[in-house]
Design a protein around this nucleic acid. Sequence first.
DNA 1: CGGCATCCCTTATGATACTG
DNA 2: CAGTATCATAAGGGATGCCG
Lengths: 114, 114
Amino acid sequence: MEKLCAVRRDVLGHVGNRWSALVMMLLETKSRRYSEIRKSCGITPRMLTLTLHELERDGLIARITRDGDRPQVAYALTDAGRSLCSILGSLISWSDRHHDHIIDSRDRFAAAGD
Amino acid sequence: MEKLCAVRRDVLGHVGNRWSALVMMLLETKSRRYSEIRKSCGITPRMLTLTLHELERDGLIARITRDGDRPQVAYALTDAGRSLCSILGSLISWSDRHHDHIIDSRDRFAAAGD
DNA sequence: CGGCATCCCTTATGATACTG
DNA sequence: CAGTATCATAAGGGATGCCG
């Protein structure tokens, strides 16, 4: 197989790290405010900022500001983000379908390890 | 969205961490020996062992030993592993399709950040 | 509200040497 | 060949306080 180049690994990273996937899934239904995301998934401000920056940098989400009486900022998936999210969805659903299989396998593995 | 339970995160972990995905992709075409994998992807023995153990524990790969004149051990994908691998394939191909988009996005992001 | 900065801890990964 | 053991470093993540 061809090696995993940087971009590939970064994309896999967006899927595999602690928060990116969760944030994207949260934005799948609708755009949300910073504090809204923060409360929804119990992420610390630091990690949320880092996560949002990385996702925005890679064009997966967009930061939308609306300035009026009370300036607002919201985050939404881009088209690219949405299409990645759908693959993410298959991954989540794969996990759920194989949940029992995995648990069983772990039990057997642990039993064999004695 | 429903929170990411442990198993879900572990599965995403198999995709996102440094080596699991690479090892699985390597096994997609055929089963391989320990040393073969090692040389193919330049992983250290320690990380390879850890990676193989986790994948085997979760039932994604199987450790096949054949003892005869010269005992051998090989690793192969299980059915579950193969089905996860196919999603992994979509992810890789998504990365490739969006490679340019991502690079552009990063350039614009960096330019805006000045 | 929407962040950024600092400190600190945990986990992931790497280098290397050694063993059945 | 197929690992294990030990040590060291890097990256990821959390707690907390401050700011425009």
